[in-house]
Amino acid sequence: MTGAPDDEALIRQAQQGDHDAFGRLVERYYRAAYASAYGVLGNASDAEEIAQETFVQVFEKLDRLREPGAFTSWIWRIARDTALKHIRKHKRVRPVADTPEVETEDRPHEPLVAAEEKDQLLAALEELPEDMREAVLMRYWEELEYDEMASRTGVSAAALYQRVCRGLKRLREVIERQGKDAMA
C-alpha cells in the first residue's frame, strides 16, 4: 500500500513544513475532498469551504500520517467527517432540501423532482460502506480512470473496478428500498 512516489515525496516534504509541497498536494487532492464533502452536504459552496477546512486539518495532523499510501483515503474521511460536523453544527440533519444550491441559481427552473432525486441519491450514498462510496465517487464524481485510482490508493485497478461495481449494485438496492419505504 504505497502511493505514487511523487506523492510520497511531497508528503515527506510537507511533513517537514514545506508549504509549496503541501500546496501541490492540496491542488492534486482538492477535488477528492470536495467530492467527499459534497456527498454529505449536497451543496457546492459548503463543500468548497469544507474542502479547504479539510486541508487545514490535514496539515495540522500530517505528522501522524505514517503510511503515505493511505493519504487519499485519509483525505476522503477527514472531508466527510468535517462535513458531518458542519451539519451537526448548523443543523442536525442534512440540509440538502432546504439549502439553496449554487448550481440551481444557474438553473432556477430545475424541477423539484430533480432535487428530490438528488436527495435520494445522497441518502443512498450515505448507506454505502466507506470503501465502496469512495470508489464510486472517485470514479464518477472525480472522473478518475481506474489506473489513476489505483496509483492513488495502492489498491489494484481490478479490485477497484469490483468495488465500484459492488457499490453501484448496492446503491441500486438502497434506492429501490428507499422507494418502497416511501410508498409504504
Binding site: E27, Y30, R31, Y34, A44, Q52, K118, L121, Y140, W141
Partner: peptide, 25 residues
C-alpha cells in the same frame, strides 16, 4: 445509475484557487 450519479455530480471546483485559499489560511 451511472447517469444518475453523473447528473448530480458536483460542479468541478477550481483546485488551484482552492489550494491558494488553503495556503492563505
Amino acid at each position: 445509475l451511472i447517469a444518475l450519479l453523473q447528473k448530480h455530480a458536483p460542479p468541478a471546483p477550481d483546485s488551484r484557487r482552492g489550494a491558494e485559499a488553503v495556503l492563505q489560511r
